[in-house]
Nucleic acid binder design. Structure first.
Lengths: 260, 260
DNA sequence: GCCTAGGTCCCGTGA
DNA sequence: TCACGGGGCCTAGGC
């Protein structure tokens, strides 16, 4: 049985077939279309060649000729996707009742329509997220400083969760904010909120540490103002061995070239 | 001349053809694949049916059966996309020298390979972005308060740009932060940074106003703590007429149904 | 090139 | 269900 089928017919016939296949197969349309979205914003997309994907969960993605981001899209959870014909034009439209969002795509030319009977039970396996990094710092406190002793991960405050909390040898509280990417001014301010909170609540000296992959001069200046310590960590250099270890069995499968 | 062509052949022949079409046409592969990404994170994607898009700008998008977001992707600007064959497996791989990021996709089965000779010079026309909303408030200051007089848009401070600045009838400075969506705690804190800055620098009384589509109880509580004013604005109800007016000529084109 | 901020952000998690 | 925060965020705009 073929996994992909290329449909033929007039706009009306296509609309009929697509309505039947909707939610059963992934639908891909290559064609010339315009699109209009009305919801959180209004957008109008003039005519051009585009690639439309409609998945079985009724998420819809309209891709242009450039970039990773679609031109228009609709998350799953909207109402049924509607396929219809206006003369020789194939119309694909969605309406999300809750937010009153509408998306209408008008294909004045359809070059190819493909249905894809795809099966996929796999889930993406990721290593190196921010929480992995905080775990790593908990196990390698010397990266923060020679006398840093971690005590708590994900400590809750009214202002949010503190990534990592600990003490130095004098018993001073140290609060660590962990970022995977380069630090932003907002990161520095977020840390300031936490430090202020603890100084108010615990009435003791609190030190702030911001861990990130890089620091701009502007952020460094902010950190000096607040008397916080920046710590640069090159995650990509730290993690490869551990990640490879963790994923080694799946990687074996990968390179052994045996499907599933 | 046909806009879409479905390629045939062994993995080796496909790899050869795709190498030639790369950057000239959009390439779409329906197949069973695994994928591994190593860069800012590491990810491993076990085997499953997927849809791969490679655009002419060498952006690459691998879609699974659900959701708007791709499973794996690569922005344009990486090195050349490489197509090769390992036995009967079609391998698509990328390498971004600057960040040393690699993505390798192994198709053990290819159901269909389509090239799309797409032409698109259109640009997406958007109305209702945050800056449009700030402009609107500048022209309709009464929404902020009966005695609000706007003075400046996009006022720069060391802590970032203030969306909207003005004064009340007593000459007090009013700082307005504008959000299109529901307000988050971070929005409240961002406003606090601006207000603190002005109080420090100008040594005058400063009032803070947060405009958003909605406020959670937690955010309202924060605003009370800081003595800031929340203003709820239903952008979707405010904008339709203006947006339609602005876009009326393009909308005429749209509904007149004449391609391009 | 880096830095900054917005997004129809999307998406997972937890209450 | 909603609120909150991360993301390989992506992308546009400034400098």
């Amino acid at each position: 049985m073929k996994r992909t089928i290329n449909l033929k017919g007039t706009a009306k016939e296509l609309a009929q077939q697509l309505s039947e296949e909707s939610c059963k197969k992934t639908i891909v349309i290559f064609g010339f279309c315009k699109a209009i979205f009305d919801g959180r914003i209004k957008s109008f997309l003039p005519g051009g060649d585009r690639l439309l994907i409609v998945k079985k969960d009724e998420s819809l993605i309209l891709h242009g000729s450039k970039g990773v981001k679609p031109l228009n899209w609709q998350k799953s959870g909207a109402g049924k996707i509607n396929y219809s014909a206006k003369g020789s034009t194939l119309v694909v439209s969605t309406f999300r009742p809750k937010t009153k969002e509408t998306l209408e795509i008008l294909f004045t030319r359809v070059y190819q329509t493909t249905t894809f009977d795809d099966h996929d039970s796999a889930t993406l396996n990721i290593f190196g997220s921010e929480s992995d990094l905080s775990d790593y710092l908990f196990d390698h406190p010397e990266i923060i400083g020679p006398d840093f002793q971690p005590t708590t991960r994900e400590y809750e405050t009214p202002f949010g969760f503190i990534d990592l909390r600990g003490v130095d040898k004098h018993g001073n509280i140290i609060i660590v904010e962990v970022k995977k990417q380069s630090a932003t001014p907002a990161d520095a301010h977020q840390l300031k909120r936490y430090v202020d909170y603890f100084q108010d609540v615990e009435k003791v000296s609190v030190r702030g540490v911001l861990v990130a992959a890089g620091f701009s001069e502007k952020v460094l200046s902010l950190l000096r103002t607040y008397d916080f310590k920046p710590v640069v960590v090159f995650w990509q250099e730290i993690f490869p061995s551990k990640a490879t270890l963790n994923m080694s069995h799946t990687l074996d499968d990968f390179y052994n070239n045996n499907p599933k």
